[in-house]
Design a protein around this nucleic acid. Structure first.
Lengths: 211, 211
DNA sequence: AAGGAATCTGCACGATCGGTCAATATTTTT
DNA sequence: AAAAATATTGACCGATCGTGCAGATTCCTT
């Protein structure tokens, strides 16, 4: 009955792989690398433990795939930061996108946070290669804006760090934020207010040249 | 020969307890709760594993003590935020103190971050009782400043979160910050620059009334 | 339809974990 | 000095972990 070109096997491979990755992202986020057992990931994915090992040969390999996918998502979120764009629009859009990611993919953010807190034992090469080049590039863009008088003088590096920290806070610390919100998840309106408030706090003065 | 009033045993109890707590803070921070083994904590403290169990009956009890001490340190750091103080001085001092703590006690910050990321399985009561009351109090203070025209209108809650996130970033993500700093720890000058930059970014507009 | 490739899964092994316990050593009290 | 209280330590146990592996099952190719 199935007329897909690749056949049932290939289609299933993609589906099962995706389900394992999704389960792994959640379990790694909620229990940490050591606390996350393959059996729990398998149970969350709804398959036997041995099947997880079949698709990802080791726990570490599975973990590395999870972190790698998150890294890619985040890097692409900053595409708006280019020399030709308006500082307020570009940085504001970046904050909006990162807060949207914090809302929709909090597990990935938590996995990354855990990895960095523990001094990147698995993905140190990502930091030294891709992240460093990416950061240097974005800092250069912001510095150019400043040199062109498009925004006031502010440390590009620390501004980037403040944006990262303040946006990821709503993913990594969502449990604390929720507890301080009477135990309720943010509503749509509250997420809008959050985006407006974070942009207001961090981008004050950005957009209009001079002090 | 020892003439201390409390005797050798009592003196040793305090010293050994402190050494275990210090070692536990570091190991919990670098390996997470599950990844931190009692034997590694014991080895870091320079005593046998059984001795750790003798002073803190369970791993969980030891962990709770570590988190509790960190919580106390942080809460006391915000003593400057009172209605009678100047907004810029109070919030600026808070940021300075938190960044100083990020520099001197990064392990504690990491332990707290890990605990919250994993949804506070051990210290949820701290969040619901002490942290909520503390936060409500500080938000009320900031709101009063705004009502009095001492600072511009900004969401007190999100401003607090931005301060937390941007300061703790330099503790929790110190490994990432270090990697992006050519692998070197921040120098004294760089820490001063960090304090100035974070205050500049977050407190822009605070201190002078009106929009 | 048949044979081979790919997928799935239960079982077992060695390692490590948190925690118990009894024996010993040290300090304090009587 | 004897006895009691406290502190230290190594040996040990049941549970859980990641992972290897052989056999069963399903799918694809010819």
């Amino acid at each position: 009955m199935n007329k897909s070109v690749r056949g049932i096997q290939s289609r299933n491979r993609v589906e099962v792989t995706a389900r394992i990755l999704s389960a792994a992202e959640q379990v790694f986020a909620e229990y940490g690398y050591s606390g996350a057992s393959i059996s729990r990931i398998a149970a969350t994915a709804g398959i036997p433990k041995s099947n997880v090992i079949y698709y990802f040969e080791t726990k570490q390999a599975l973990y590395r795939r999870v972190v790698g996918e998150i890294f890619d998502v985040w890097r692409d979120a900053a595409d708006t930061i280019t020399i030709d764009s308006d500082p307020l629009d570009a940085l504001g859009g970046y904050i909006d996108t990162k807060l949207e990611l914090a809302r929709t993919r909090p597990f990935g953010s938590k996995v990354w946070a855990n990895e960095i807190i523990q001094r990147a034992p698995i993905v140190q090469d990502y930091l030294e290669d891709e992240l460093r080049a990416w950061t240097d590039d974005k800092i250069a863009v912001i510095q150019t804006w400043i040199d062109n008088g498009q925004m006031r003088e502010v440390s590009p590096r620390h501004l980037l760090y403040a944006i990262w920290a303040s946006t990821q806070h709503y993913a990594d610390f969502v449990h604390q934020v929720k507890t301080l919100n009477d135990g309720s998840d943010f509503s749509d309106v509250q997420w809008q207010e959050t985006k407006a408030a974070v942009k207001d706090i961090l981008l004050r003065g950005v957009g209009s040249g001079g002090s």
